[in-house]
Amino acid sequence: MIGTRSYMAKGEEVERKWYLIDATDKHLGRLAVQVARILSGKHKPTYTPHVDTGDFVVVINAEKVGLTGKKLIQSKIRRHTGHPGGLKTLSYKEVLERRPEQLIERVVWGMLPKTKLGRDMYRKLKVYAGPAHPHAAQKPEQID
């Protein structure tokens, strides 16, 4: 059509909000999808694929996140040291006991684009094991 224009957001005119999500008894995958959508800005009408229009997300109570089925025992997080024979594997149960924030961070990272834009989105994610967080001054909006 002639005369119609699509709105494209510019990086400097994006207004960022802060959201607080309580992970208590929420399924890990569904929580991660919700967080990834907010980080990438897809929940806004001004979403633009080539601009980071997302908001900040604070996730609390990461240690109380829920997993269905046998994922706690069967699912693994793998990483490699870079040396021969350096593959390290941890079950989700071990990760939840050691660093529960890491589990949510890894799952959300898997849902974001693997580009510079995706890394900028990922930096706006703040995950804490317990209910306390240092972002009260930003007045985060609670999301159910």
Rank of each mutant, 00 (worst) to 15 (best):
T4C: 00
T4E: 02
R5G: 01
R5K: 05
S6T: 02
K10N: 05
G11H: 12
E13M: 12
E13T: 14
R16A: 04
K17H: 13
L20I: 00
I21R: 03
T24L: 05
T24M: 06
D25G: 02
D25W: 05
D25M: 13
K26I: 05
K26N: 06
H27R: 14
H27M: 14
H27F: 06
L28N: 04
R30K: 15
L31S: 09
A32L: 09
V35F: 10
R37A: 08
I38T: 12
L39G: 06
L39I: 04
S40F: 13
G41P: 02
K42N: 04
H43K: 05
K44Q: 04
T46Q: 15
T46D: 15
Y47K: 11
T48S: 13
T48A: 11
T48V: 10
P49Y: 14
V51C: 04
V51N: 06
D52M: 06
G54H: 14
D55G: 06
F56P: 01
V58N: 09
V59H: 14
N61D: 14
A62C: 10
A62L: 12
K64S: 11
G69K: 04
K71T: 09
I73P: 15
Q74V: 05
S75C: 11
S75R: 10
I77H: 08
R79H: 02
R79L: 02
H80F: 11
T81H: 05
G82H: 00
P84R: 11
